[in-house]
Computed example of a mutant assay.
Amino acid sequence: MQIKEENRGGVLLLSVTGRLDSGTAGDLEAVLPARVQANEKIVLSLAETPYVSSAGLRVLLIGAKAARGKGHRLVLAGLSESVREVFDISGFSSIFAIEADVDSALASLG
């Protein structure tokens, strides 16, 4: 898994490429909580993430809690149909703001 960071007009864009599972979740856990605490607006693109396991969901939940604790906003973007299904079944769709793509996510953050 690769994590790319980019600043887009005051919004931190994190793009994850590859599977987010028990073997790679630690990589995101090492980055996401600190970034959401340090940045008021974050977009996490999962457009290149074909699979998210329960370990990946746990890391995303940690990131969401870190963002909420600071009053920051975390928006997910570009979920594939299969990843979106995992979010819907697990109830995570109601926890996160989810947009179709990065541009929509950036627009939602103003």
Rank of each mutant, 00 (worst) to 15 (best):
Y51L: 07
L44G: 07
V75R: 12
E40P: 09
T49M: 05
A77I: 03
V31P: 15
R84S: 15
E40R: 14
L74E: 10
V59D: 03
V43R: 12
G56I: 00
A64N: 15
R58E: 04
Y51A: 07
S53T: 08
F87D: 13
Q37S: 05
R35M: 06
L32A: 07
V31C: 06
V83H: 09
E29P: 00
L79Y: 10
L44K: 06
V59E: 02
A77L: 09
L44Y: 01
R84T: 08
V36F: 06
I42R: 08
L46M: 03
K65R: 15
V83E: 07
S53L: 01
F87I: 09
N39H: 15
A34W: 01
E85Y: 12
T49H: 09
V86R: 15
K41T: 03
L28W: 01
G78D: 02
I42C: 14
S80K: 15
E81I: 00
G63S: 09
E81Y: 07
G78L: 02
L76V: 00
E40D: 13
L76Q: 08
I42A: 03
A47Q: 12
V75C: 13
R84F: 07
A47V: 02
E29V: 00
E81V: 08
S53F: 03
I62S: 12
G56F: 02
L57A: 07
L32W: 06
P33I: 01
V52I: 11
V31A: 01
A55L: 00
L76K: 10
R73D: 12
G56A: 03
V43Q: 10
V86C: 14
V75E: 05
A66M: 04
L28S: 06
I42G: 08
A64E: 10
R73I: 03
G63A: 05
V31D: 07
L28K: 07
A64G: 08
V31F: 02
V52R: 11
A30S: 12
V31E: 12
L46G: 09
P33R: 04
S82G: 09
A66S: 14
K41V: 00
P50Y: 04
V52P: 15
A30M: 04
E85Q: 14
L57K: 10
L32K: 11
L28F: 02
V83S: 13
A30H: 05
R84E: 13
G78E: 03
V43W: 03
V59M: 05
A67P: 15
L60G: 07
V52H: 11
L57Y: 06
E81G: 11
R58Q: 03
H72T: 04
I62N: 13
R58C: 03
G63K: 05
V36D: 10
G71L: 06
G69I: 02
A55C: 04
L28T: 03
L74H: 10
L60K: 05
N39W: 00
G71E: 02
A30V: 00
R58T: 02
L60I: 01
A30F: 01
L79E: 09
